[in-house]
């Protein structure tokens, strides 16, 4: 059986600039990978390459053994919610229904089944009561959950999230993580990228750093050396012996 996700020496250039260099790793069904790295380190590009949104790349990318962008890939994508035009005239339920766009075929309208799936997804992220709201009336965390619901209606086997906890309060962060943990238990493979080391919480079982180069850490510790290598500046945030728990960062939070 082919791997859920397999990358081999993936290199992406934008013009002269190398954004990703020789990125290699693989994930199996139900894996949960957290990728951290500085802004501009290529995190979003990595996700876009997996989604088939990058036209030119070198190396190999396979999603369930198929090339990126293949129809059968069933990849759920949760883009950065801060990138959206929140004034766009669209209601929550119509955003979520977009997950069913690929199943429209020649029909001009969504089916009853599509609508039920959308409502189920909204229920699973606790946003059902907001279904008729315009998106400008949502908080960042609420829009985030709507975007997760939208990705879920595609019935994904692989879920990719870009900065899902940016500008989201602590309680909502915990909610989002426990939701992702449930999804992982249902066999969905998850890749989450963030520039915020604090989000790589105990739910994430595999950690990697990305700053053009990808330093995959498997299931062990996230060592200061690795973060230093990724960020290219000394960072001393990680509590040794407690895998993936970003100890001092949390303490900083409480002092704030």
């Amino acid at each position: 059986m082919s791997r859920a996700l397999e990358l081999e020496r993936l290199t992406v250039r934008y013009g002269e600039q190398i954004v990703l260099k020789d990125v290699s790793f693989h994930l199996d069904r139900g894996d949960f990978l957290g990728v951290i790295g500085p802004n501009g380190g290529g995190k979003t590009t990595l996700l876009k390459a997996i989604l088939g949104l990058v036209d030119k790349y070198h190396g190999k990318v396979l999603v369930n053994g198929k090339p990126p962008g293949h129809r059968d890939n069933r990849v759920g994508y949760v883009p950065q919610h801060s990138e959206f035009d929140k004034k766009f005239p669209i209601r929550v339920r119509d955003v979520v229904l977009m997950g069913r766009l690929g199943n429209l075929g020649f029909r001009p309208f969504y089916t009853k089944n599509d609508r039920e799936l959308a409502l189920d997804a909204l229920k699973s992220v606790d946003m059902l009561e907001y279904r008729d709201r315009q998106i400008s009336k949502l908080s960042g965390g609420q829009l985030q959950r709507v975007l997760i619901a939208r990705a879920l209606t595609t019935d994904p086997r692989l879920l990719l999230l870009d900065e899902p906890t940016a500008s989201v309060d602590e309680k909502m962060k915990t909610n989002i993580y426990s939701l992702l943990s449930d999804l992982k238990d249902r066999g969905i493979t998850i890749v989450l990228v963030s520039h915020d080391i604090g989000v790589i919480s105990s739910y994430v079982e595999k950690v990697a750093c990305l700053n053009k180069h990808f330093i995959y850490h498997g299931t062990g510790d996230l060592s200061p050396d690795m973060i230093e290598a990724a960020y290219q500046c000394p960072i001393d945030l990680i509590a040794h012996g407690l895998p993936h728990r970003v100890f001092e960062h949390r303490m900083h939070r409480e002092e704030d």
């Binding site: 989604l51 883009p79 959206f84 035009d85 766009f88 977009m98 690929g102």
Partner: peptide
Amino acid sequence: QGVSFDEEFSKVVG
């Protein structure tokens, strides 16, 4: 509606 709101996502779902 999909292409207007979020072209990338629309492309991802086919």
